[in-house]
Design a protein around this nucleic acid. Structure first.
Lengths: 162, 162
DNA sequence: TATTGTTATACTCTATAACTATA
DNA sequence: TATAGTTATAGAGTATAACAATA
């Protein structure tokens, strides 16, 4: 079409390229989860690019907003990352002006995390954008199936019961 | 317990830390998919550590085995990565002795990918290990729910229909 | 001694962009 | 001109390991 020999383009990611045999992959829940996650991740990031918000940053903001005075160690535990990772994450959110490190009265080693004024205002808008994006991404499912899906995903997230 | 001040440990990743409010996150399919993917990924990698196989490497081996003479460019498209990424992936699988680059008769630029003898033998065992792991990971779902889940995940992987 | 936050460092994954040899 | 494979490079993301301040 146009004159662009450069650019790897990508497109959205086609879960089923025509003419390709997928064999056992199509029967694996693990593969299905991976495909769904890849697709949803990129749509999320695009939709939230305006705020430079990734799924992890959004999760962190919500958790901080609902759990007053959360420490960095606890945030790391909740998100499933190591403490040094939460420092990087928190540094980014602080630089964006969304959260602050607040001194903890009883413990001079720790900081409690809290949303800034701007963080509170923007999180409301960001949450609305996330809900809009979620609605679009799950538009092919009615409320009942959506609920079933959430239940089953929750079961998959539990460690194996061996 | 023991005398180890070092080690960040991690454990498996707890999707619901007691005492923590998750708010809107618990209602989002996107967050549920992410949690499920994190949990299943680490279990997969642990179960396949013996062969140094990741989900992506397994997918590549299956696709190559079922689609004779697949090129690196096509493999990249199927996996949703860029061509330079497929070179890295293919290099690794070649070094492991699982696949070969085979000259394509009509086109001296391209290579067709093919499993080696060892690749064929090991893929059979690896596939069995993956199926065992899959059964363990989805043990909390019966066949009917498992089928529903696969259908819904497939819908999520489609790009939004705006 | 143990814990909190931090830093330095490294490793993995994957992207961009340029290059080469063919087509 | 366009395409297949390749390479160099860089940017996320996240891990390990050590450290200072405090408990």
């Amino acid at each position: 079409m146009s004159t662009r020999a450069l650019k790897e383009a990508e497109g959205p990611f086609n879960p089923h390229v025509p003419g390709i045999e997928y064999g056992v992959l199509d029967t694996l829940v693990g593969y299905g989860v991976r495909r769904a996650q890849l697709a949803m991740y990129s749509v999320f990031v695009d939709a939230l690019a305006k705020w430079n918000i990734t799924p992890q940053r959004f999760s962190a903001l919500v958790i901080i907003s609902l759990n007053e005075g959360l420490t960095l160690t606890k945030l790391a535990e909740v998100l499933g990352i190591v403490r040094s990772g939460s420092v990087v994450l928190v540094d980014a959110l602080v630089e964006m002006g969304y959260i602050d490190r607040v001194e903890v009265p009883g413990d001079r080693r720790a900081y409690g995390l809290a949303l800034t004024r701007k963080g509170q205002k923007d999180l409301a808008k960001i949450t609305q954008a996330v809900l809009d994006q979620e609605a679009r991404a799950t538009a092919r499912l009615n409320a009942a199936r959506r609920k079933q899906l959430l239940e089953m995903l929750d079961l998959l997230a539990q460690p194996p019961q061996d």
